[in-house]
């Protein structure tokens, strides 16, 4: 992929987020399911809804810590930032999840494998309050 074209989901202003989780539902729906179980984006409160909300999604680090700790090479660095997962190589050790400082690697308990953002931007279309943007890494 062309370096300049690598995109990611960025958080424009989480202060305005209402916690509707439509972004999370979109992420699982993109795979043909309802619910939230396969979502690579999480919206949770910062110590109770009364204190506001925070949105967690992979920020496509240029030098991803998750990839560095992967013992099998299942995670490879994507050109331009972020990672790609090859589930066949993944042994479910969970190191990547521990290494991400944002908690942006989620877990598929059924398969015992990480859930990693695909940088598809689908979720962005369903945020009613323009909290999310799909833009080039580094912007």
């Amino acid at each position: 992929m062309d370096y300049m074209c690598a995109k990611r989901v960025s958080i424009v202003d989480s202060e305005r987020c209402v916690g509707c989780q439509l972004c999370m539902f979109a992420c699982t729906r993109r795979l043909g399911y309802g619910g939230l179980g396969l979502s690579a984006i999480l919206v949770k409160s910062t110590g109770g809804i009364e204190r506001g909300l925070t949105v967690i999604v992979c920020r496509a680090c240029p030098s991803p810590p998750c990839q560095k700790v992967c013992p099998t090479g299942a995670l490879t660095a994507r050109e331009g930032g972020g990672v790609r997962l090859n589930p066949d190589k993944c042994i479910g050790c969970g190191h990547c999840r521990d290494a991400c400082p944002f908690g942006a690697i989620f877990w598929n308990y059924e398969l015992n494998k990480p859930i990693v953002c695909l940088y598809c931007g689908y979720c962005v279309n369903y945020c009613p309050y323009k909290i999310l943007a799909f833009e080039e890494v580094g912007k």
């Binding site: 209402v18 916690g19 509707c20 989780q21 439509l22 539902f25 009613p128």
Partner: peptide, 9 residues
């Protein structure tokens, strides 16, 4: 604030 899955808030 919204309930989960509610865009109306």
């Amino acid at each position: 604030v919204a309930c989960s899955h509610c865009p109306v808030a």
